[in-house]
Nucleic acid binder design. Structure first.
Lengths: 132, 132
DNA sequence: CTGATACGATTACGCCTGTAAACTGAACCC
DNA sequence: GGGTTCAGTTTACAGGCGTAATCGTATCAG
């Protein structure tokens, strides 16, 4: 209990990869207009403004974003929290590939040298917290 | 260097979720005929044999499976290793959601209570190995 | 030899995605 | 007030995915 509260995203609606890039921009700062979102993602993806507008609309339809009128335009705000999205995606991966258990995932990252010394240190201290 | 060797999967070809279920069956046991794959996945997904055949064909096209004639039918064998696939998918997720660093992923799993006591114990012992 | 079978290959089809152009209506400038 | 501009809405369209049915043919039973 305690944690997920009204997570938006009605039904089994999922956020696609392109849509996710838009969400990231709005998780960094919101509310933003379509044009501002365009600028924000401009660094990563080379999208026309039209594309950004399409993605915003789809996200609104999916219940992932709220709109607030600001004169003749809209400002967009996330309705789902990044932590919830990230948690959901992580769990999906762990379920699909590691039978729902996190240790094998961790083992995999470790084996494939995907863990930096800093990662290891951080994880270790997290472990200490968990254990007590 | 040293690690991934000839990974199959030409180009940016990706394995879809349905296709992945087929791969799992073949990673458990191979080579298998289409009918055998159908039986193997029968428990998880409720697919007609036709669907299984479609997925097998697509996987062959993508370079993820090899075929070996056995009389009038084919036997299918994975061309990519499960470890490579799993590693790739894991890295994709970590890159997309955690800036490529594993510690935040771990922190997330920990926070969302996705770690069992056993997970924690296992990870701890993995950490010990890594440290020395 | 001939009909029934068992396979892979071909075709189907609607939905989602990525990527955008065209349309439409309101607001603003002269 | 009329044209220009800007924003959202509608339409587009190819490619991937999930899910099959159908077709063509090689083989097997009788």
């Amino acid at each position: 209990m305690g944690g997920t509260k009204a997570k938006g995203l009605l039904g089994g609606e999922r956020i696609s990869e392109a849509e996710h890039a838009v969400m990231e921009a709005l998780w960094v700062r919101s509310p933003l207009s379509a044009a501002e979102v365009g600028e924000a993602v401009g660094g990563q993806r080379d999208w026309s403004l039209a594309t950004v507008k399409t993605l915003l609309s789809r996200l609104v339809t999916k219940g992932a974003l709220a709109t607030e009128a600001d004169g003749r335009r809209f400002l967009y705000t996330p309705l789902i929290e990044r932590a919830d999205y990230v948690g959901g995606e992580s769990r999906r991966l762990v379920d699909r590939l590691f039978g729902g258990r996190a240790a094998p995932l961790f083992a995999h990252l470790a084996e494939s040298e995907a863990l930096s010394a800093q990662d290891i240190a951080e994880i270790e201290s997290l472990l200490q917290e968990l254990k007590q």
